[in-house]
Design a protein around this nucleic acid. Structure first.
Lengths: 240, 240
DNA sequence: GGTAATAACTGGTATATACATATGTTATTG
DNA sequence: CAATAACATATGTATATACCAGTTATTACC
C-alpha cells in the first residue's frame, strides 16, 4: 500500500489512500478510521508520519479527531461549496431542475473600454461575446452574456461553449481557474430582457455580474446575467 | 517569552506571539520571520515544536513558507472575509460610508407559523420584532426587519439593538454566533418601502433574508432587508 | 449488583535526530 | 571573467521515543 522508495512523501500517499476510501464510500461519515498507532504498525511507518497525513485531512475537513476516542470521517463536506464557484448548469442541477440553453449570439468583437479595463486587456483587443438564454424545465430563467478574452482563451467554438467551458479551459488549455467576484443588484427589465425572457414591462430583474480569474490572478471572463426575479433567488452561506 | 510550565501548549504560545507581531505591525506582509532553527534555539524548544506553531499559522494564512528561503508574512488576509458575516454597520464602513439608524418599531410579538418554523420554536412563542431604517450618509439605504427568539436571547433592549447586538450576544450572554444562510432576490417596492425609503412607485428593490445560527446550530435571528436597488449592490467573492 | 480503582486504549504535546531538497553565497576552476 | 563546484542555510520528510490527557472497558472490592 505504501511505497517507501517513492519520491512521493509517505504522508501524502497515506492521505490519498484515506481520501479514496472516503470518496469510494468504503468509509462513511461518522465511521472511525484505524487509530494512528494501528496505521503506523500496519504500514511500518512512524506514528508521527501518520499524524502528518491525518492532520492534513483534518484541515481539509475530511476527518475530525476526538481526543481519547479516535478519528472519524467528517459529515457534509458539501456546505462549504455553496459559496463556491458554480456554473448555471451546476446551480440548476443542485436545485433539482433540468437546465438547457438557447444560444442567441456567438461572435468575436473588439473590447470596449469598460470591458477591456475589467479584463485587464488593451482596448479593441478581440473578445468573444456569447449571448445565451438559460432555461430551467424549458422555462426562460436568465439572459446571460459572457465576455472572454480571445487572446487568453484560444480556439473557443460554439460547441465548446454549449458543452462545458470551464472543463475546456482546465483540461484542454491546462489553465487553472481561480477566484471570482460577483456583484448582485436589482433593476427593471429592459427591452431585450422583456423579449427574450418572456416577461412583462416593469418586471423586476436580478442582475449578476461575475468576473472570473485564473489561478494566477488574470481575469479571463465576465458574465452578466439577468435573472427573472419571479423564478430565481440567490442563496449564499456565510461563515462565522 | 515562552513558559514551559504553563498548561497552554508551547506551540500555541508561540503562535499567539507571532500573530501579535503581525497584527501590531511589527512584522509586515512580505517580511521574513526568524528561521525555525533560530526560534528553536532562541526559545530553548525543539524545532518540531516551532514547526507545529508555524504550520498552524500557515494553514490560517498568516504565513507562507518557501523551501530553501524562509517563512514570510502573508499578504491580504482580508479578501476571504468578504464572504463572511457582516452587519450593516460593518458593511457600510467597509464601503467608506457613514452608517446610521432610525428605529421604527421595537416590540415583543408572538411568532407566526412561518417565522416560528424558521427559528425552530413553537408557534406563538415570544419574539422580538425590530424594524429599522438603515441609512448611509443620512440617505435611506434599506428597511430592515429583525426577528429574534426572545427565549433564546434574553434581556434585549432598544439601547442594545442600537449599539451592537452581536457584541451583546457574544460577550454578555456568552453565546457564540455560527453560520448564516442568505437568500437574495429582486422585487418591486411595496407601500411601506416606498414611504420609508423615500422612493418612487415601481422602484426595484433588492430583498435579502438572512437566518443566523448560533455555533450549536440553533437559529436565533431572521433579518429581512429591503435595499434600494439604486443605492446598493451585493458584492461576493467566490473561491475556486 | 453496584462501584471504585485500574488497565488499555485514544489522540495531544514535545523532544532529539537524521537526511532530503531548494536556495543563495562564496570559493574555485577553466 | 564566467561557469561551476562547494558550502551554508532554509524548509521538507521521516523516525523513535516519551509522557500527558481524555475515554472506555475490565477488574476487584464491598
Amino acid at each position: 500500500m505504501i511505497d517507501k522508495q517513492s519520491p512521493i512523501p509517505i504522508y501524502h500517499q497515506l492521505e490519498e489512500q484515506i481520501k479514496k476510501k472516503i470518496e469510494s464510500g468504503e468509509y462513511s461519515p461518522g465511521d472511525s478510521i484505524p487509530s494512528e498507532r494501528e496505521y503506523a504498525e500496519e504500514l511500518g511507518i512512524s506514528r508521527m508520519t501518520v499524524r502528518q497525513a491525518i492532520t492534513n485531512l483534518v484541515n481539509e475537513q475530511y476527518l475530525h479527531r476526538i481526543k481519547g476516542k479516535g478519528t472519524f470521517i467528517a459529515e457534509q463536506k458539501l456546505e462549504q461549496k455553496l459559496t463556491g464557484l458554480t456554473s448555471f448548469t451546476e446551480d440548476m442541477l443542485a436545485r433539482g431542475m433540468t437546465p438547457s440553453n438557447k444560444l442567441i449570439h456567438f461572435e468575436i468583437i473588439p473590447a470596449k473600454e469598460s470591458l477591456a479595463k475589467e479584463l485587464d486587456i488593451r482596448e479593441h483587443s478581440p473578445i468573444y461575446e456569447i449571448t445565451r438564454v438559460r432555461l430551467a424545465e424549458n422555462v426562460p430563467m436568465a439572459l446571460e452574456k459572457t465576455y472572454i478574452s480571445a487572446n487568453l482563451i484560444k480556439g473557443l467554438t460554439e460547441k465548446i461553449v454549449q458543452a462545458s467551458l470551464y472543463q475546456y479551459i482546465e483540461e484542454e488549455l491546462d489553465l487553472k481557474i481561480g477566484k471570482a467576484s460577483q456583484v448582485i443588484e436589482a433593476s427593471l427589465a429592459n427591452k431585450e430582457e422583456i423579449e427574450l425572457l418572456d416577461i412583462d414591462k416593469h418586471s423586476p430583474i436580478l442582475l449578476m455580474k461575475r468576473i472570473t480569474h485564473l489561478e494566477d490572478g488574470n481575469p479571463f471572463e465576465i458574465v452578466k446575467s439577468s435573472y427573472r426575479a419571479d423564478r430565481y433567488k440567490f442563496m449564499i452561506d456565510l461563515e462565522r
